[in-house]
Design a protein around this nucleic acid. Structure first.
Lengths: 324, 324
DNA sequence: TGGTATAATGATAGCGCTATCATTTCGTAA
DNA sequence: TTACGAAATGATAGCGCTATCATTATACCA
């Protein structure tokens, strides 16, 4: 079943059939109807591969998420969902790539979760293939559009909240990976402390695997080793949930005994008690923006996008003032 | 940068270059080395669209998840992650489709979350395009491979657990959608009650939107309207979490006052207190199995797959015996 | 009525690869 | 040496579509 068959049946050339499908306004209504009847009769289904080869457009965006990142992570899910919403409006599909092999059946790339070296690597990959790349994260590279959450500002803001509530003995539980976001959140933590005149080196930073167990263990360590502690900043909500579990288990009250703040705000709040005060990263929206950015690039835009989105403080129930 | 360029540089024909890439054993080592040097020098990158057109194989599987289903749902992501694991081993990519438009850049389809009518619809779609279809769900259609969780058995098992613990006044909170799984879980609930000699019509079934708020509201209604109730079966863990929140808020103890069981077992357990006894659906594994099934089909297998997987009871902390 | 602009259609040539079959080269045995 | 089968390579023809340019039909105005 090819255009040619339809063309024969309706007595026109293949290109006219192609026009009826892709640009009907270029075809006289009478001809169009004739062709449409033939399309209907033969139950014509287009071959998108052939179209992609001829037109050099395939209608697919690749979302590159390194295989090291768990796809069931809520961060990833929200990101992907945001991308999906935009792309489906523009009649693009998307595929999820877990490694950079030979395939590149796509018009452009969206990437996330990369280390600095990996950014260089994927840029080379996409550049060789002459495809645009947009990034969730930040990079100085002038050819890469990128949007990132301002992790430093967010961490600073939420630490500041603890300070504003009179806390002076504050600990941080960070993720045990050397990624930009962990470094930046630690930096925000330190900045807030310094501005409040507190020596950051007096405030312990524990690292743990980014799951509830990790947060649990880290909190136990803080309780054991830092009894003065009244406030804890967890670099992710997942860690905060584990930390909260540890507090409940050991009979500590949140926030009466210990105030707890997290970072992410991806909907755990519905699931957990008490709801943890946190910083919301608009991951879904960033996914949307990146998808839009990539599509404008594909449509010929040359507008460079470099954004740093300030995350938003979400006040909930896990912070209390210290009585002076 | 085409095969032809490489062919010219290395002094062979394009087809020989193609062989070096796709079937090196057919090429004499000396020639092969010559061509490989040229590939290297020109930094050749294959065009997979052209290959797909010529070979009628594209290396992509489409995962069809109707746009009505939220991608941030853990169920979906576990499913997708399982598929992803298998496909990446077989050098397939996958793309997520949210609607059935003209595109079908793929070798086969995996679908989930469909109503009966939608199954018919996607079957027609894939059949017209001569592509195999496998389904998470069940259908009588002889041309569709499918694997499903035995929702009835799971619901029956977990309701039985409440009954075994002496509960006689049991309510169910179900999802307010008319899908197979909601019907089947309600059925399992009824079957367990009947076998225990309890008239199901005396046990209220509340429906609610499938999120924590839905579970919360439903639980409040049960507390208000059914004071004798000591056990609640929630058709999803998400509902169970909302229900648990409602119980805590109103000062009820789990499981001392009310025993609670859920259905899903997709890892919420790490996040929530108390951990809710539930039924685990091996969604990740089903994703893997379906991907494997589809790949064997693509490799010419004619082995029909129709499976019903029994879910597994996960005992946690939310069920207590009633003192006789 | 003729001339010009515009609309409608068509002919042709790829897009970059692989399938198929044909041809050449080579090794081995008679 | 010749013959023959196997190994290696090549020529050719698409895969099914669209881009590009050329051509023909139609509309409109003077």
């Amino acid at each position: 079943m090819r255009l040619e068959d339809v063309a024969k049946l309706s007595g026109v050339s293949t290109i006219t059939v192609s026009r009826v499908i892709n640009a009907p306004h270029l075809v006289k209504p009478a001809t169009r109807e004739k062709v449409e009847r033939a399309l209907e009769e033969l139950n014509y289904v287009q071959n998108p591969v052939a179209r992609a080869l001829a037109s050099n457009k395939i209608g697919i965006i690749a979302v590159y998420i390194p295989a090291t990142i768990d796809l069931t992570n809520p961060f990833v899910m929200h990101f992907v969902a945001g991308i999906s919403e935009v792309l489906s409006k523009h009649v693009y599909s998307f595929l999820i790539r877990r490694e950079l092999d030979n395939e590149h059946l796509c018009d452009g790339y969206i990437a996330t979760g990369l280390l600095k070296d990996e950014v260089r690597q994927i840029y080379q990959y996409t550049h060789e293939r002459n495809r645009p790349l947009v990034l969730f994260g930040h990079t100085d590279h002038p050819d890469i559009d990128c949007i990132d959450v301002d992790n430093t500002a967010g961490a600073q803001k939420v630490t500041q909240l603890l300070l504003d509530n009179g806390h002076r003995h504050i600990a941080m539980i960070n993720v045990d990976e050397d990624k930009d976001y962990t470094v930046d959140r630690a930096m925000g933590f330190r900045l807030a402390l310094e501005q409040a005149g507190i020596d950051p080196s007096t405030c312990p930073q524990i690292v743990a695997e980014n799951d509830a167990n990790g947060g649990y263990g880290a909190m136990r360590r803080i309780l054991a080793e830092y009894p003065l502690c009244t406030g804890v900043f967890c670099a992710t909500d997942t860690l905060a949930i584990g930390a909260a579990n540890a507090l409940v288990k050991t009979g500590k009250k949140i926030p009466a005994d210990i105030s707890l703040v997290g970072f992410d705000g991806l909907g755990h709040d519905l699931l957990v008690r008490p709801n943890v005060t946190t910083v919301h990263q608009p991951v879904y929206e960033i996914g949307m923006r990146l998808a839009e950015t990539l599509i404008s690039r594909l449509n010929g835009s040359s507008h460079r996008v470099k954004e740093l989105v300030p995350p938003e403080l979400i006040l909930r129930e896990s912070v209390a003032s210290i009585q002076a």
